[in-house]
Each structure stands twice: as structure tokens, then as C-alpha cells.
Amino acid sequence: MKKFKQRLSCSFFFSIVPGILWQLLFLCLPLVFIIGLSFFEISDKLALFTMDYYRVVTNKFHLLVILRSLSVSFFVATVCSLIAYPVAYFIAFKVSKRWQSIGLFLLALPFWINFLLQVYAWCFILERNGLVNSFLLKIGLISEPLYLMNNMVSVILVMIQGYLPFMILPIYSGMSRFSKRLIEASYDLGASAIYTFWHITLPLTISGIRTGFILILVMTFGEFTIPTLLGGGKKLFVGTLISEYFFTSRSMSQGSAFVCVSAMVLCGAILVVNKIFGLISGATDHEN
């Protein structure tokens, strides 16, 4: 028995160590490196401690970029949850088992195509002589092509399309664990469909929205592809500005400081979101 335990802990040890090493090497180390870089001015042979970079990246311009990215992320996550909830509800409760798996398959289908290609596809749709404009010209609704690309609207639109599955899937997975018996029990006790939704279904499936919301917040906050290809480059986002620092102007230290500041803002945003969702589900729990 003892031997068995030893062997078990041995195999346990070997099964987790590679993962930990991997994380240390490729996540923690670069992170430490970036944090370090943000505090030091590096000349030929010297590294001088300085807070100057942080002074720069917390100025009005940088904060505006962060604020812009953050509000776009919040907007995208909110719209995604509003679209995704009914879709997930439909798949989880209103269709047969067969159509459930077909629905999930269709949801996962966009992941088969490279994300960059998906965004390019949007360019073909939205550009000056793209699909939408040629169609509208043809049916005579407009006489001049519309400017559909290179603005905030196109960025948001494409982000919603690209990240919607990340909202639907966690909500669906929460709903598939939710027992329909509870809905029946609620009706049985005299509740209307609307009362049941607000007091039983929503509180018990809201954790999926929370997961999806945070997922989308994190992924869109640093999004680089979409603002670059569809944003027109006039308005900077967090992702585009970071790339600017690291690849164009090559001011690594300042870029690192900016990364640190925006990461902290993101952490704060996640905490706030968590708190809000906690309050919502708490409020629906103990209403009256």
C-alpha cells in the first residue's frame, strides 16, 4: 500500500512538473522580464532605476487609449452576452439532442478558419467596393459607396462576430447542467414564466455569462488584428500601441511600462465585473 502511494506521488510529480516548468519558463520569466524592463533605463552598459516610463504611460494620451480599449471591450462583451444568452437558451432547452450537437458544431466552425482570414473576409464585405456597398448600389438604395470600414463601428462589429462563440459556449455549458425540473417546480409553486426566469433560470445560469464576459474582456482588450485591419490606424488601441512600442519605435522599456499599467487596469476591471455579477446573482437570490 505504501509502495503504491509512493509510486502514485512519483507519477503525480512527473505529470505536473513539465507543466510547471513550461509556465515558469514561458510565462513567469517573460513577465518578470517585462516588469523589470519597465523600471530601468538601459544604456550601453548601465541599467538605471527610473519611474519615468510610468510617468509617461500614465499621461492623458495613454490613459485615453486604455479607456478606449476598455470601453470597446465592455461594449462588445455586453452585446455578446445579450445575443448569446437567447442563442444558448435556445440550443440548450428548445431543440432536440441531435440539433444541439449540430448547433454546437456550427458554433465551433469559425475556429477552423484562421482568425486573420476571418477578419480579412470582413474587409471584403465592408470595403468601398465590397459586398455590402455593391449590393446597396445595385438595388439603388445608395448612389455613393458608404464608408463602412476604418471606423469604430466596424471594429466593434467584427469583434462581436469573432468573440461571440466564447460567450455562447460557457453559457450553454452552464445551462446544460441546469435541471429543467427546477422550472417545473417553480411553475408548480405558482410562478409565471417571467417570474421563473428572473428568480430561477437567470440566477442559476448567470455564471456562464460571467465566465464569457471576463473571457471576452481579456481577449478583446489586447486585440491587435481587428483594430489594425479595420480600425484605419487613426485611433490607437492597447494592442496596437503595444505593437507600436515593441516593433516600430523599439522603446521596450516604455512599452513594458504600458503593458504593466494596462494589465493592472484589466485586473481591476475583472474584479469590478466579478463584483457586479456577484451582486446581480445575490440580488436575485434574496429579493424582497
Partner: peptide, 18 residues
Amino acid sequence: ANERSINTVFQNYALFPH
């Protein structure tokens, strides 16, 4: 169901977990 004066004890109770 919500207008009937009939109530049910479900097999697995169907208590509201939250």
C-alpha cells in the same frame, strides 16, 4: 400548472440550489 391548486414533491426534490 401555476394556476392549479395542486403541488408536487418531486422525485429528486428539485429544490432551488441558490
